[in-house]
Amino acid sequence: MWRHIVSNFLSILIVVLIAAFGMVSWAKREYVSEGPLANAICYRVERGANLRGVSADLSKAGAISSAYLFRAGADYTGKASQLKFGSYLIEPGASMEQIIGKLTDGGPSTCGAELNLRIGVRANDAVLRELDPQTASFVEVAKWRPAEEDTPSVVAEAEQKGDLRLRVTIAEGVTSWQVVEGLKAIDYLDGSVAAVPPEGSLAPDSYQISRGMARQAVLDEMGKRQAAILEELWAGREDGLPYASPEEALIMASIIEKETGVPTERKQVASVFINRLRQGMKLQTDPTVIYGVTNGEGVLDRGLRQSELRRETPYNTYVIDGLPPTPIANPGRASIEAALHPDETQYIFFVADGSGGHAFATTLEEHNRNVAKWREIEAQQNSQ
């Protein structure tokens, strides 16, 4: 009899263990498999939020199939108490494992609002954007010029939520003085700047910042990025270029940056100036003369005077031979690439063509015809 009871007990125990194992296996599969979310959502973890409340919210939003399994999985992986404040983009079909990872791994928020403070060649502006979870792209909410307009109220509303992301974006072709002045005007930053960095030494790019961050720290990061870009591209440069150093290539890149705003023209413009250097011709480029007049401190809102074109300065390439002594702006990566990988052409002249680009020429006769066409276009534009 006892043997029969023990046998039945063992049978039941085995069935229970098999069932338990099956339940555990199912729960594990459910935790790591594709979730029920059909459309992307932005989910915000509030400060001090607990896992029970978060799991209930996610279940209500249709992002997880079981609040209990979500909590159990988070507890089993040691993430139950590691929720990070912020707004996060949860993609369609995200598993419970992926969602808890996103909410606990930290790092910048992937959803919500972003304030981009942009330092440009002619003006600075600010743009507030919010991420549309359905398209995973940012939608512009407000745009204004801080020096001329009051900050829109929507910025304060975004700040009150506590997770507004901040960025500083530097346009290609700005001078180092413009960058420093732009950073000084950003109230979110702190501290003074030791000195205006050397011209050309800052990388035009977008930089994430935080409230109270030191202005000098932002400048240091810009300098590190530009140095890394120049080192990388210099190592892979074309053979036979007329540069004695990476610094000379940076000078050329800054001239290219200021001469054309058409990306596809950069390498053609580079070929013109390189051909002139090889032939011992003067570069004769207005942007260098302008830099000699302004010292990079602001924009020259008028045409160059004949006296300025004749005056001998280190930057007047109508008078001096070769390159000016320093860059005339901070060139972007594409202009540095153009300086180090120019097109192979015979061009030694170019002039505006009225479309925003340039007409290139190999002879003075051809160039004069292009200039005449441009003068006609100018006259038509001025008469309208």
Score class of each variant (00 low, 15 high):
residue 94 A to F: 06
residue 114 E to R: 14
residue 283 L to S: 08
residue 255 I to S: 12
residue 300 L to A: 07
residue 19 A to D: 01
residue 180 V to K: 06
residue 267 K to Q: 15
residue 330 N to V: 10
residue 230 L to P: 03
residue 184 K to Q: 11
residue 381 Q to N: 10
residue 172 E to I: 02
residue 38 A to V: 10
residue 363 T to G: 11
residue 279 Q to M: 13
residue 191 G to Q: 07
residue 75 D to K: 13
residue 201 S to C: 07
residue 151 T to H: 02
residue 39 N to D: 14
residue 106 G to D: 02
residue 143 K to H: 14
residue 272 V to N: 07
residue 258 K to D: 00
residue 349 F to G: 03
residue 191 G to R: 06
residue 141 V to W: 01
residue 55 S to H: 11
residue 60 K to M: 05
residue 195 A to L: 02
residue 231 E to H: 09
residue 312 E to K: 13
residue 216 Q to K: 07
residue 7 S to I: 13
residue 7 S to F: 12
residue 199 E to C: 10
residue 155 V to P: 00
residue 278 R to A: 03
residue 64 I to Y: 14
residue 320 I to N: 00
residue 256 I to N: 04
residue 196 V to K: 00
residue 69 L to P: 00
residue 247 E to T: 05
residue 94 A to Y: 01
residue 382 N to M: 11
residue 218 V to N: 00
residue 25 S to K: 12
residue 3 R to Y: 07
residue 236 G to Q: 10
residue 144 W to F: 13
residue 6 V to S: 10
residue 367 H to D: 05
residue 306 Q to A: 06
residue 284 Q to T: 11
residue 253 A to G: 00
residue 342 P to Y: 00
residue 24 V to N: 01
residue 119 I to V: 14
residue 112 G to C: 04
residue 166 L to R: 11
residue 131 L to M: 12
residue 85 F to H: 11
residue 44 R to A: 10
residue 17 L to N: 04
residue 281 M to W: 15
residue 248 E to H: 03
residue 31 Y to G: 05
residue 279 Q to A: 15
residue 5 I to N: 04
residue 36 P to I: 07
residue 371 V to G: 10
residue 228 A to W: 03
residue 331 P to S: 08
residue 32 V to E: 10
residue 275 N to Y: 08
residue 303 G to R: 13
residue 158 A to Y: 07
residue 42 C to N: 11
residue 383 S to Q: 13
residue 271 S to N: 06
residue 85 F to R: 13
residue 182 G to Y: 15
residue 370 N to I: 00
residue 296 G to P: 06
residue 269 V to S: 10
residue 163 D to W: 05
residue 24 V to P: 00
residue 30 E to R: 12
residue 328 I to L: 09
residue 240 G to M: 08
residue 225 R to M: 04
residue 383 S to Y: 05
residue 140 E to G: 03
residue 183 L to G: 10
residue 200 G to F: 10
residue 330 N to S: 08
residue 28 K to M: 04
residue 281 M to E: 09
residue 17 L to S: 11
residue 72 A to Q: 05
residue 278 R to L: 14
residue 234 W to E: 07
residue 119 I to D: 04
residue 230 L to W: 01
residue 383 S to N: 13
residue 344 E to H: 14
residue 290 I to S: 05
residue 173 G to W: 03
residue 141 V to N: 04
residue 150 D to Y: 03
residue 195 A to M: 03
residue 343 D to N: 12
residue 81 S to V: 05
residue 350 F to L: 09
residue 17 L to G: 03
residue 362 T to M: 13
residue 39 N to T: 09
residue 352 A to E: 09
residue 193 V to H: 08
residue 85 F to P: 01
residue 75 D to Y: 13
residue 247 E to S: 12
residue 122 R to N: 09
residue 225 R to Q: 14
residue 285 T to P: 02
residue 90 I to V: 15
residue 206 S to D: 03
residue 106 G to Q: 05
residue 15 V to N: 02
residue 363 T to M: 09
residue 225 R to H: 05
residue 276 R to W: 02
residue 203 A to W: 02
residue 7 S to W: 08
residue 315 Y to W: 12
residue 228 A to D: 14
residue 112 G to P: 07
residue 102 K to T: 15
residue 356 G to H: 01
residue 349 F to E: 02
residue 343 D to Y: 05
residue 45 V to M: 10
residue 198 P to A: 14
residue 260 T to F: 05
residue 375 R to F: 02
residue 137 S to L: 10
residue 90 I to M: 04
residue 187 D to L: 09
residue 80 A to T: 06
residue 232 E to H: 06
residue 359 A to E: 15
residue 206 S to A: 13
residue 279 Q to L: 15
